[in-house]
Simulated assay, not measured.
Amino acid sequence: MSINTGIDKNSLSKTVQGLSELLADSYTLYLKTHNYHWNVTGPQFTSLHQMFEEHYTELATAVDVIAERIRALGAFAPGSYSAFANLTAIEEAGEQLDATGMVKDLLDGHETLVRRARTVLQSEALEADDVSGDLLTQRLDVHEKTAWMLRALLG
């Protein structure tokens, strides 16, 4: 069924593509953060283990919100590992990192999400879509704050 909400099809398509990429990035970062939660070791274990849990819990909620926005725009949300792998700009966790390496890697992931969200937010496609713009602004806020906190951990 077609959508008639005042957003032209070209803008709708571009917004869905941008949100799909943001979803893939968010899900990939969720997986990476959960992995690090399970596998962190060292003197900062307790604080990092708890912080990573807070981060992956927030990301789990975010992927649902982003996917539901894609659905509200009339498209199917990507939802497989292969779809996410084709859409994400975040690399999977490879080798086992130490705690500092994990923090640096997650910092890079959050900054990647900031850049992706900002690119979509600044797109002309969002001119008639305040709801998607609001979602992107909220994601920017979360990822910029998280990146700041991760940078502070690194000194």
Rank of each mutant, 00 (worst) to 15 (best):
R71G: 10
A72N: 12
D130G: 12
S2Y: 13
S132E: 05
A72M: 13
L97Y: 08
A99S: 15
L97G: 04
Y36D: 13
T61C: 07
R118G: 03
S132C: 01
E68D: 14
T41E: 15
I3W: 05
K9V: 07
E53T: 02
M149A: 02
A128R: 03
V40Q: 03
R139H: 11
V120F: 00
T33P: 05
A67Q: 11
E92K: 13
P78S: 08
G109C: 00
L121R: 03
S2I: 08
N39H: 14
Q96H: 10
T137E: 10
T112Q: 08
T88L: 01
S132T: 15
T100Q: 14
R71H: 13
G101K: 01
D105T: 05
T28N: 11
L19K: 07
S132R: 02
N10T: 04
P43E: 12
Y56A: 05
S80M: 01
L135T: 07
H37G: 02
H49Q: 06
G94S: 14
P78I: 05
A62E: 11
P78D: 09
G94M: 07
E111R: 14
Q96Y: 05
L12D: 12
R69N: 08
K145P: 01
A77L: 13
L106A: 06
L126I: 03
R115Q: 14
H110S: 03
A67T: 13
T46L: 09
K14N: 13
D98C: 10
Y81R: 08
W148V: 00
Y36S: 03
T5L: 13
V65R: 15
K14M: 12
A62N: 12
A125C: 00
D134H: 14
T88S: 03
A75R: 08
A60C: 10
W148C: 01
A128W: 01
R71C: 07
D105W: 03
K14Q: 15
S13A: 14
S20C: 04
T28S: 11
W148H: 01
L113V: 06
K32C: 08
E144K: 01
H143D: 12
D25N: 15
G133Q: 03
F84C: 00
F52H: 01
N39R: 06
Y36E: 09
A89C: 04
E95T: 12
R115S: 13
V103S: 12
L73C: 07
H37I: 06
Y30E: 07
